[in-house]
Amino acid sequence: MSIKFSVLASGSTGNAIYVENGEISFLIDAGLSGKKMDELLAKVDRKASDLSGILVTHEHSDHIKGLGVMARKYKLPIYANEKTWQAMTPLIGEVQSDQKFTFDMETTKHFGGLSIESFGVSHDAAEPMFYVFHQGEEKLVVITDTGYVSDRMKGTIANADAYVFESNHDVGMLRMGKYPWSVKRRILSDVGHVSNEDAALAMHDVIGDRTKHIYLAHLSLDNNMKDLARMTVKQTLESVGSPVDEQYELVDTDPYEPTPLRSLGAVLV
């Protein structure tokens, strides 16, 4: 068995990632309507009723919009840290107590052969955290919604087979764009989102000889473009001695369409 995953949707309009290992399957976040979540899963030939649970990163609406609906409809377990539970409980509606599970930051839970490690990020939420999936020597990292990537984070996420990595905005587009300055300042801050350039520099510090795929995620609809993000990340990586395409590839994600279900062995199914 190998870890397989699909970035079902990624961006300011909603985020969700599907991960499985053949016996266990999880969503990371459910940031679109319940109906849309069902449609996205169907596009990768999967069903919400087969999920083992939903892992929550933080309480912002683009990560939990469909969470309550999915939990109630399919009786799914939900995993989040205590501060996130406190922040999101008023937002997701009633969820049965036997579906609520605490997943503390900087801990690892084991589900069959799949181990899931949580780690904290720097974002303006109650206690935001993301996840590393381990199975044998395989390693998948999901890291978005962070204002910067600290040395501690880098140590946790180093040398993964694949990354779903935030590349949120182009700094020039953001500065010249329509957002109020208060919003721009928040995005540019240490508790906002990483830019294309800063994402690439962090990638350079963590990619290793196992790394084959880097998915550029959580692109701003107003302050970024797929081609621009890919070009900027590639140029920045190559400028610091990390030639793209020789060892690993950059992969686009989309706010409305899932990426193909991929195994960490790079087999498309």
Results as ranks from 00 to 15, higher is better:
residue 198 D to E: 10
residue 194 V to Q: 06
residue 142 V to P: 02
residue 180 P to L: 14
residue 142 V to Y: 00
residue 182 S to F: 15
residue 151 D to H: 01
residue 151 D to Y: 03
residue 181 W to M: 15
residue 161 D to L: 08
residue 145 D to F: 07
residue 187 I to E: 09
residue 156 T to L: 10
residue 148 Y to Q: 07
residue 181 W to F: 09
residue 156 T to G: 01
residue 189 S to T: 07
residue 180 P to I: 15
residue 183 V to C: 08
residue 194 V to M: 11
residue 146 T to L: 13
residue 179 Y to P: 02
residue 175 R to W: 07
residue 198 D to A: 11
residue 149 V to K: 00
residue 138 E to H: 10
residue 166 E to V: 09
residue 168 N to Q: 01
residue 161 D to G: 04
residue 171 V to I: 04
residue 142 V to E: 01
residue 185 R to E: 15
residue 168 N to W: 01
residue 168 N to S: 06
residue 177 G to I: 01
residue 193 H to E: 11
residue 168 N to K: 02
residue 169 H to N: 06
residue 169 H to Q: 04
residue 183 V to F: 15
residue 170 D to W: 06
residue 182 S to G: 14
residue 134 H to E: 07
residue 197 E to S: 10
residue 167 S to K: 06
residue 138 E to D: 12
residue 145 D to N: 14
residue 146 T to W: 13
residue 134 H to S: 03
residue 182 S to E: 15
residue 179 Y to I: 05
residue 188 L to P: 14
residue 192 G to Q: 05
residue 156 T to I: 13
residue 168 N to G: 01
residue 134 H to R: 09
residue 153 M to G: 01
residue 150 S to V: 13
residue 191 V to Q: 03
residue 150 S to L: 09
residue 173 M to D: 06
residue 183 V to G: 03
residue 168 N to Y: 05
residue 144 T to S: 07
residue 167 S to G: 06
residue 144 T to K: 11
residue 147 G to N: 14
residue 190 D to S: 11
residue 194 V to D: 10
residue 177 G to E: 04
residue 192 G to M: 10
residue 166 E to H: 09
residue 174 L to R: 01
residue 175 R to G: 03
residue 149 V to L: 06
residue 132 V to A: 10
residue 145 D to L: 03
residue 196 N to T: 11
residue 188 L to M: 14
residue 187 I to G: 00
residue 159 N to M: 04
residue 170 D to F: 02
residue 187 I to D: 09
residue 193 H to D: 12
residue 143 I to D: 05
residue 133 F to C: 02
